[in-house]
Design a protein around this nucleic acid. Structure first.
Length: 267
DNA sequence: CGGCATGTTGCGCA
DNA sequence: TTGCGCAACATGCC
């Protein structure tokens, strides 16, 4: 499910389903999901309240309640929200449910998450994870001087820098891999070895294009990844640009696909 | 059966 | 104090 584009589409769904809706029932029995708060706190905070808006920063969602309460949702690796009829059977991997009434119509909004790496918290204040997030490239755009400085300052691989949620909120393994391929920059290049600001600009453009492309693609085919990715998951296949066999390395513990021939490595 | 997975966190060590 | 590498989390799927 979850990188910036998926989470943005989820935000739009939740906004349609929940903004202005009154909560009639709320449940989760999954303590893992709601840590460090409790499942009981979740129900108590929601029932009788009305959602006023649905925000997103990076991969985090925040649902604001009319009494100032906030519900934070992170989809982890396999999380997602679905809407079903009230009384519909428990969805596969269902971990939480919120029943609502919106403009006289009742529905049930459910959180599903096979691996349970996601989070679902009902709190009164913004959580530290949310506050620590850097700019969201889709919502806020990319401030070039800031990005360029962040790159120049670090000697880690550019792929790891770009995936740091304090640098860009919402960029994950797929977007970083695709964005760097579009930018023609080798993901192993160290930040402080890049040619700035030219490389920073190329990477920023690459990331924005990767986000726009994923967004359009995911909108088209709701489930299952359409085959729109240039290189992610295609190790050994020909590079779509120059036909060289795509390579892969592990950076920051994550598989990274790239083209040795047309992505330039700065040293 | 083995290996891999879109994310985050915490630990040990340099 | 900072940074890095890696295992762990829990489960599905190929």
């Amino acid at each position: 499910m979850p990188e910036l584009p998926d989470v943005e589409l989820t935000r739009r769904d939740l906004k349609r389903w929940l903004a202005g809706a009154l909560v009639t029932a709320a449940d989760t029995e999954d303590a893992r999901l709601s840590r460090p708060t409790s499942p009981r706190a979740f129900a108590r905070a929601l029932i009788g309240r009305t959602f006023v808006r649905v925000e997103r920063r990076g991969k985090w969602l925040r649902l604001d309640l009319d009494d100032g309460g906030k519900v934070f949702s992170h989809l982890g690796m396999t999380g997602g929200w679905v809407r079903v009829a009230i009384g519909a059977p428990v969805a596969r991997f269902e971990r939480a449910r919120i029943n609502v009434v919106l403009r006289g119509r009742a529905s049930s909004v459910r959180y599903v998450d096979a691996r349970r790496f996601g989070r679902l918290l009902a709190v009164r204040e913004d959580i530290a994870d949310w506050i620590a997030l850097g700019p969201d490239p889709f919502a806020d755009g990319i401030e070039m001087s800031r990005f360029s400085e962040a790159l120049a300052r670090k000697r880690r691989a550019v792929k790891e820098i770009v995936m740091d949620q304090r640098v860009f909120a919402g960029v994950g393994n797929i977007l970083a891999t695709e964005g760097l391929w579009i930018a023609r920059i080798d993901p192993r290049s160290r930040g402080n070895a890049l040619r700035l600001p030219a490389d920073a600009r190329a990477i920023a453009r690459g990331l924005l294009r990767a986000i726009a492309r994923e967004l359009a693609d995911r909108k088209r085919c709701k489930d299952g990844r359409a085959d729109s990715l240039f290189v992610y998951g295609r190790t050994g296949q020909p590079c779509p640009r120059c036909s060289t066999r795509l390579s892969s390395v592990v950076l920051g513990g994550r598989t990274t696909v790239f083209c040795r021939a047309c992505q330039v490595r700065r040293r």
